[in-house]
Design a protein around this nucleic acid. Structure first.
Lengths: 337, 337
DNA sequence: CTGTTAGCGCCTTCAC
DNA sequence: GTGAAGGCGCTAACAG
């Protein structure tokens, strides 16, 4: 573990030039080819590595971006993170990832820590869009913020998925198959995916001049446990829907668990549609019909939006990139009657 | 976007104290209760946020840890990352995540960037344990490094999983069921999980005084595409094994795809064992017998090891925490004959 | 093209 | 318990 306390000044004296010249070499500014060689050699000889902390301090830019999400071990966020990191890495930015675990207080703590670290930008899927403290904090920030499938008042760009239209397509599809008794389990209204999916669900029924059965519309959380509990409730009641939509990839995992537990067969006993295409929906038997979207697009567009805004922080209107949603029909839904 | 260019000096003059005193308040050093209140109020009034970059520069510590992996969208790494981040967050450390995409050159680039950023520590699952350039780079580093299920010469702590014994248990289990024709698809020898799983596989056969059928032992990569391709080859040959072990969670995904494609039924046509317990193995039908380990332990122990070493960088011998492996029997294997 | 110099914001002696 | 001063490593402005 060689302690490298070598700095630009050491390089300068070793190469017989000034620190300014070394700095220029590091930053690829015009330098005579002789001094360039000289400096490069000196750097190699004494094992110099530029100190990004000092540079950040001086340039007032850290080339670091924060990503704040519930849980990186959720495939959804992991996929988004990967795509975002790819874009950032190409531009020499680094990605700081922090999990809020759905805790607003923790979320705020994380944001403050990122502020102190002077990140150049932030991508965040806030835990609760109606949380005023978080909103105030995000508004107070002096770097660009991109919301990941969230809506909040403030000068934020966002990448949003077209959940509602997707859900309508799904409902229409189910109606076409003869289903009238349809359930949906998804997140609460304080978070865009839950809100939009529920809205699309209602819109789908409206379009058919049908009433939503409120007992079968469950809006709470987006996690597997919630999906499991609600599915058990809905499916073990005396009368149950003929089709159930899992409004979220983790919810689907819970729903499937419930279906196995109750020993139901898809699609004989129950038609099922999920959101987000993951291994599980493709590889389970039968393969599951899903409302899908390009998650990598979410991540890479979010990163690009951020970089753009960092480079030209014009005060003009905020962008909202919407990612389309698509119904992929597989074998998890059957005709009714 | 209020530009906050307030620093410790502004706070000091606002509060009518010296910068030293403000610094003491920030760092919770003893200060008279009056000045404490004074300073706190001043900080609030002018909206002061400590600058972690400047602090890092001064204290020579960034409170940042790097995590270098192939692909954060691999459940394996996502789970590890989550557990590690939790531990780090509690200690006020932040986590920088970068994907190598299995590219050694990119991996080196990332490591160098982390060095320049002066991270306080690094967790890494190197792409290729035999890569000398990467090894040299990691040895040259002046902060602690923890290897994630990898082995390399050098002053590195590591967290390793007990793959070989787990694989032996699996083989023994299959033999007990009457299987003699067993295949394994896993990573190459230049990466610990692949090497250990293959070793355990061979050991299992040795223990039974049986020969491994080399046609059915495939060591290449740990991704789904490789798993798929190899499974197709093995399973569509004129004679095929009665049992197949997927040596990795992504490989299993590919294997399952191949099985569906060839329209085989588990366990009637083929017994299957996978490694790592994920949604897919639990929820597919039938549920899959797996060699499992506690992935969260991997992440949290790695973080703890790192923090320990950061706090006391004694030169004493390197630690290798080994995480046990366990065979979870489910319904994917049947008796033979 | 190159050298010199003044800080970036903070912490840490050292006096008081 | 508090104030003053130096410097962490680097970049940017200016002068040559």
């Amino acid at each position: 573990m060689p302690q490298k306390r070598v700095n630009i000044r050491d390089v300068a004296s070793r190469a017989g030039v000034s620190v300014g010249t070394v700095s220029r070499v590091i930053n690829r500014k015009p330098v005579s080819s002789e001094t360039l060689a000289l400096v490069n050699q000196a750097m190699r000889e004494i094992g110099f590595t530029p100190n990004a902390v000092a540079r950040s301090m001086r340039t007032n830019s850290t080339l670091a971006i924060g990503l704040v999400i519930n849980d990186i071990s959720n495939m959804l966020f992991a996929t988004i993170a990967k795509a975002a990191e790819k874009v950032l890495q190409e531009q020499n930015y680094s990605l700081l990832i922090a999990n809020t675990d759905n805790d607003p207080a923790r979320e705020r703590f994380i944001i403050e820590s990122l502020i102190q670290r002077r990140v150049d930008g932030l991508m965040i899927a806030v835990t609760d869009e109606t949380d005023h403290a978080t909103n105030a904090l995000l508004r107070s920030v002096d770097f660009p913020v991109v919301l990941l499938d969230r809506q909040m008042e403030g000068p934020f760009d966002s990448v949003c998925d077209d959940h509602a239209p997707g859900m309508r397509k799904a409902i229409r599809y189910l109606f076409d198959l003869g289903h009238r008794d349809i359930g949906l389990i998804t997140g609460a209204d304080n978070v865009r995916p839950g809100r939009e999916r529920a809205a699309g669900f209602r819109a789908g029924f409206l379009e058919q001049d049908r009433q939503v059965n409120e007992r079968w519309l469950r809006q709470g959380r987006l996690d597997a446990l919630y999906g499991y509990a609600q599915a058990i409730e809905i499916l073990s009641a005396s009368s149950r829907p003929t089709a159930l939509v899992a409004g979220g990839n983790q919810i689907f995992s819970g729903v499937l668990r419930a279906i196995r537990r109750l020993d139901l067969t898809i699609p004989r006993d129950l038609s099922v549609i999920s959101c987000d295409d993951v291994d599980l929906t493709v590889l389970t038997d039968p393969p599951i019909t899903v409302i899908s979207r390009d998650l990598e697009e979410v991540g890479s567009v979010a990163a690009e939006l951020l970089l753009r805004r960092i480079r030209q922080p014009r005060e003009d209107e905020r962008l909202c990139h919407v990612v389309p949603t698509e119904l992929i029909v597989r074998e998890s839904c059957s005709h009714v009657k």
